[in-house]
Write a protein that binds this DNA or RNA. Structure first.
Lengths: 347, 347
DNA sequence: GATTTTTAGGCGAACGTTCGCCCTATTTAG
DNA sequence: CTAAATAGGGCGAACGTTCGCCTAAAAATC
């Protein structure tokens, strides 16, 4: 392989100084058309590309955005983050940036890892996802004065730029939809109180119930941590309630919880949809393979990714960003798991 | 934020030249213990980290490995590549490298994209996945003289380093397992002939049948492209065969195909496992939620990722790599979808 | 026609490393 | 006791850009 082509090679061929070539290529200087053409011809003939290491050193930036996600090592299934990542990669490339992936092993000091990447100048900024209450990364990165934009929010102590999907509005939509179908006794399977996302989604349920003037039986709010197993395990105790307290609809935090619930409902011989309506969250691809089709909420994940990157790069360029906090609304996808409530039916 | 700390800052504090600091930190020079301690103390106090842009410029390398995967934009579900990516990220970091992600939009010139990253010095090498017959990336990168290691093989025209899972051995294992259970009429749902992975897996089936001296009815080999829908759609035509030609077991190329098959079998009122045994491939996480449990093949994906990275980095360092072509065997995971063949049963 | 402004392009410096070579003082060998 | 070897550390240069400033010629102004 031939040696690397540099600015000097181009300059020699075009008969100008290499600094002039640099300026012409970056559009910072106008020159006579002849010189311009000579330069571009030389670039073409030599197949010149600027060396990023040199540019990075000079401009003190890496044009790299750090990103990391923490999967459960024994359970790879996260279509939402998968789509988010892909969106982020494309958006970054369009703006001349790339995504640098780094690991976040459990047990290792998170902040340390992020700090290392900043101090070595590896990355210009970070994309965060999977935030929880009091996420240590936000204050740490603020202290290091490094830009970040998150997919998701944390506690409101520190103001920081993010794009998030409004889980409250989502569950509110689901609950309203059920009420429109005539359901009044609506239960919810939700995540532990320590989950910010869960708490927020729950509040959408509470809001919808309150607005509609529907009473909430404390037994209708069940908390759990796993996905399918939680739905499968928690549903029987809802179905065991006296008939006048038994919910006719179950809202869940996630599609997989909903699948567990549906399974439990079916094992009772109840009809999903009519007897017990069920909703999920995320519209994960595999729900396609289950019947009845699951009514669920679709997050505008691709859009989130695009906006996160655009916002982060604006921040890096010191452009002022209009809104630093964006909240997008999920879309209700209605399928067969939610049907009009018809009390005179089976059983 | 204070200014960046450089070698010169450390040197000034330690009372030596900055080049000496560099050499001590990289272990290239021995110095008196006192000087050594002074240097390390200064590093500690100033929290010094070497600047990677400068290092990259000087060493003419980026310590970045390029990786890209082409997902179906409207269908995010690829647990295997998800695990592979995570493995690769961790392995790279352990060896002082990072993964750079870049997009591969359809319709765009693949080779162009890879070339750009090489000529600008953005990456030192590439990790490839999702290879197909005559993959244009392999010869293109060879021509550019840039190291690559692939997860997967392509046609054997160009010898190149790869780590792959032996699909032939995998399907062979599945077929043998079915034979051990007494099955003799075994069908296979496979991918189009244009699929290298599919062709290879099919040959495992052919090998097992031949070794066992079992005849193959041409109707037992069905080809299709989608996943669940293919399994669901193609199975009835197998079940419609005259009883003496009807398969008692169906081997498939993928778990999702198997799920479609199971669904079709169940709709016929046949018992999955006993009447019709079914096997999948990949052991994707969601099979957990289906009953009966699916017998399938688990790829050692994590291991593949580790080896790919180790091999690539060895190549970059010009260390000689013993074996440039590694083939790992998948593990058969036996669940309820394969049971002993018992012909006197139902129907 | 003399002076000022603009234009085209050159030049030096710096970004923060790594690496080879050089020098001096000490140790070892003869 | 002298000559050679070694250890400790310094110094200059280079990696390939970008950026500000400078100069000479051409153009515009009075």
């Amino acid at each position: 392989m031939s040696k690397k082509v540099t600015l000097k090679d181009v300059a020699r061929r075009a008969g100008v100084s290499y600094q002039t070539v640099s300026k012409v290529l970056s559009g910072q200087k106008r020159v006579t058309p002849e010189v311009r053409d000579r330069i571009y011809a030389a670039v073409e003939e030599l197949d010149y590309r600027p060396n990023v290491a040199a540019r990075n050193l000079r401009t003190q930036s890496s044009y790299l955005l750090g990103y990391s996600w923490q999967p459960d090592r024994h359970y790879y299934f996260n279509p939402v983050l998968e789509e988010f990542q892909q969106s982020v990669v494309e958006a970054a490339e369009e703006l001349g940036y790339h995504i640098l992936l780094f690991p976040q092993r459990q047990g290792q000091d998170l902040v340390e890892i992020y700090q290392e990447l900043v101090l070595t100048g590896r990355v210009d900024g970070f994309i965060l996802s999977g935030l929880e209450y009091y996420d240590p990364r936000v204050p740490a990165l603020n202290r290091l004065n490094v830009p970040l934009v998150a997919f998701g929010r944390t506690d409101s102590d520190h103001a920081f730029p993010y794009v998030d999907v409004d889980g409250q509005a989502g569950i509110y939509l689901a609950a309203r939809h059920l009420m429109d179908l005539g359901h009044e006794r609506i239960a919810i399977l939700c995540w532990p109180e320590t989950s910010r996302v869960g708490t927020e989604r729950l509040s959408g349920y509470l809001q919808a119930m309150e607005e509609a003037g529907l009473p909430i039986d404390p037994a209708w709010i069940v908390r759990g941590e796993t996905e399918y197993d939680f739905g499968y395990g928690a549903t029987p105790q809802l179905l065991d309630l006296p008939l006048d307290r038994r919910p006719t609809a179950i809202v869940t935090m996630h599609d997989l919880i909903a699948l567990g619930t549906i399974s439990a409902v079916q094992e009772r011989g109840l009809r999903v949809g009519h007897d017990i309506a069920v909703t999920g969250f995320d519209n994960v691809p595999v729900v396609r393979y289950f019947r009845p089709g699951l009514t669920t909420l679709q997050q505008p994940v691709w859009d989130v990714g695009q906006r996160v990157v655009q916002m982060l790069i604006s921040l890096l360029k010191n452009e002022d960003v209009e809104t630093q906090q964006v909240l997008l609304t999920p879309k209700l996808v209605i399928r067969e798991s939610t049907q009009p409530y018809s009390p005179e039916d089976t059983e």
